[in-house]
């Protein structure tokens, strides 16, 4: 891409700033309804959590976690997901782009499809979820009573970032998949939403094959359960030791690599099939 940038006096960062600023302005047109929607989103997350809470208070095992610790896992996973959803929440909607013939218009512009989708489909209402995560996660950390060390602080910061990478990859992979198998949006998004659900509960409570799948295939359990188990010093089932929690960011990067391959394959399929 170095060659591509040669005679371009405007830097990539300036371009991104312009694209995001214009998106911000165009979203602000709907300021009123957006604030209402943001509030709804926040409310939905709390409802989701209450549901989980009710379910878990009646469950025989919480995978060795107390209710407060369950809440912590939930909000940690949610913060990661919220960041991924804010930036890549539109990536899993490529099917609509293909169906409505909008993809072609995006492909005759010099900016990558990914950047165009991230910046031009950005939904500010998705900030609602981030705000809930930014409040809920530190609150959870404070309430469960942790003996803080530097390593624990570092992991507490890394966990949602790894989570964001993992969930972003799910969204992106699903988008690539939809360009190949049109009509498979539900199937493509199953990993995203299944992963989001599995990531938000203590993995020890999950059926073993599911736990193994969401650790080593679709690494959703790196987003909260494993790092929180390490920070809290809670034992995890054999095969998924809690020190794996340190590998959230690398797992996210690996997933991102795989998602990029899907995304490219999707584009290649699209240009091969002709929509």
């Amino acid at each position: 891409m170095a060659e591509l940038a040669q005679d371009r006096p405007v830097s990539w960062l300036r371009m991104m700033a312009t694209l995001l600023a214009s998106r911000w302005r165009s979203q602000m047109v709907y300021r009123g309804s957006m604030i209402a929607e943001m509030a709804t989103q926040g409310f939905l997350i709390l409802t989701e959590f209450l549901e989980l809470w009710v379910l878990l208070t009646h469950a025989p095992a919480l995978g060795g976690f107390s209710l407060a610790e369950v809440a912590l896992v939930y909000f940690c996973a949610n913060l990661g997901f919220a960041i991924a959803d804010l930036t890549g929440g539109s990536l899993d909607a490529t099917e609509a782009l293909v169906r409505e013939g909008r993809l072609e218009a995006l492909l005759v512009r010099p900016t990558s499809l990914l950047v165009q989708m991230i910046t031009q489909e950005l939904q500010l209402r998705r900030i609602g979820r981030v705000v809930v995560g930014l409040v809920g996660y530190p609150l959870g950390l404070a309430l469960v009573g942790i003996d803080w060390t530097a390593a624990k602080v570092l992991l507490a910061v890394l966990a949602p970032l790894g989570g964001a990478l993992v969930y972003f990859s799910f969204l992106m992979g699903a988008g690539g998949f939809q360009m190949i198998v049109v009509g498979a949006r539900q199937a493509a998004n199953a990993i995203t939403y299944g992963g989001k659900y599995a990531g938000g509960v203590p993995g020890g409570a999950l059926f073993t094959p599911i736990r193994v799948f969401f650790t080593f295939v679709a690494p959703a359990l790196f987003t909260a359960w494993l790092p929180m188990a390490w920070i809290l010093g809670i034992d995890t089932p054999a095969g998924t030791p809690s020190w794996l929690g340190w590998f959230g960011v690398p797992a996210g990067l690996l997933a991102l690599g795989a998602a990029t391959i899907w995304w490219r394959a999707g584009l290649r399929h699209y240009t091969g099939a002709g929509g």
């Binding site: 006096p9 405007v10 830097s11 371009m15 312009t18 214009s22 302005r25 165009s26 218009a105 512009r109």
Partner: peptide, 22 residues
């Protein structure tokens, strides 16, 4: 198939395209 932004006036469309073309 439109290549413009449905919700934006033309005036705000060209700075975006110009940015994409750097």
């Amino acid at each position: 198939r439109s290549q413009l932004w449905w919700d934006l006036p033309l005036k705000e469309t060209y700075p975006i395209l110009a940015a994409m073309h750097r």
